[in-house]
């Protein structure tokens, strides 16, 4: 897998700082699992963030008694048996198939058993549970686009991340293949079309509703329900 489209630095920074919407964070973490380059960027940002901790001076009054008690309390806790723990946790994980764990954690069924719901000819979707509970304008869903099908032109009032899980699509920005992520904000109007003989399956995370233009699209919008 050669990844050509990555997460923008402003999105990665919000992820590192913990201010990115939970739905978008799932898409980011899923891409990070398969993209060493974006993980390097995260590591760099964590170094930047930790400079601020290094610059923070301890409080003027010391908390010696509190600290001594806390130190004793922690060291009274057994340290975990490292290797065994790791092995157990990876075996106990959900059946994940070809989907990285950050996404698999939110998938009630494996990717090849998804009960797709048809939206319009050529386009089906499958809404996923929302991480951290329902949040206005925020959604996580899988979308399946049949070969040659064009997604109605739309723009975004918030942020949208599209991660390609299978197949590929092409739009005004370029060609997106397995592993690629499209990090779009509200300035971009686009009209992706699945461009091979294979279904294109993608994860779409949004924070802020999509805005469709055109009559057909306005019909579609209430069906998608975002």
């Amino acid at each position: 897998m050669t990844i050509r489209h990555h997460i923008a630095d402003d999105t990665l920074m919000a992820y590192v700082g913990g201010t990115l919407a939970p739905s978008l964070s799932v898409a980011v973490a899923t891409h990070l699992a398969i993209c060493p380059r974006c993980r390097d960027s995260v590591a760099m940002m964590e170094e930047v963030a930790s400079l601020y901790l290094e610059e923070t001076e301890p409080l003027s009054h010391s908390e010696k008694d509190k600290d001594a008690a806390l130190l004793d309390q922690i060291m009274a806790t057994p340290r975990t048996e490292t290797a065994e723990q790791g092995a157990v946790s990876s075996l106990a994980g959900p059946a994940i198939g070809s989907v990285p764990r950050p996404l698999a954690d939110y998938m009630p069924v494996p990717l090849d058993q998804v009960p797709w719901k048809r939206l319009v000819p050529g386009i089906s979707h499958y809404p996923l549970p929302q991480p951290g509970g329902k949040r206005k304008g925020s959604a996580l869903r899988l979308l399946k686009i049949a070969p040659g099908t064009r997604i109605p032109e739309h723009s975004h009032s918030g942020q949208e991340l599209t991660l390609i899980l299978e197949g590929s699509y092409i739009d005004e920005i370029g060609r997106f293949q397995k592993g690629d992520i499209a990090d779009l904000d509200n300035e971009i109007h686009h009209q992706p079309v699945a461009d091979t003989d294979q279904d294109c399956i993608c994860l779409i995370a949004t924070d802020g509703p999509l805005k469709f233009s055109g009559i057909f699209s306005r019909l579609l919008q209430p069906i998608i329900g975002i």
Binding site: G17, G86, P100
Partner: peptide
């Protein structure tokens, strides 16, 4: 510091922030 930030984020969200897991068979090193 990264551990501290994650503890704090998880506490605010009441749910762990999704993170890549190097033990995941789908993880690409």
């Amino acid at each position: 510091h990264t551990i501290a930030r994650n503890v704090k984020i998880d506490r605010l969200r009441k749910e762990a922030r999704p993170e890549p897991d190097p033990e995941d068979p789908s993880f690409i090193p």
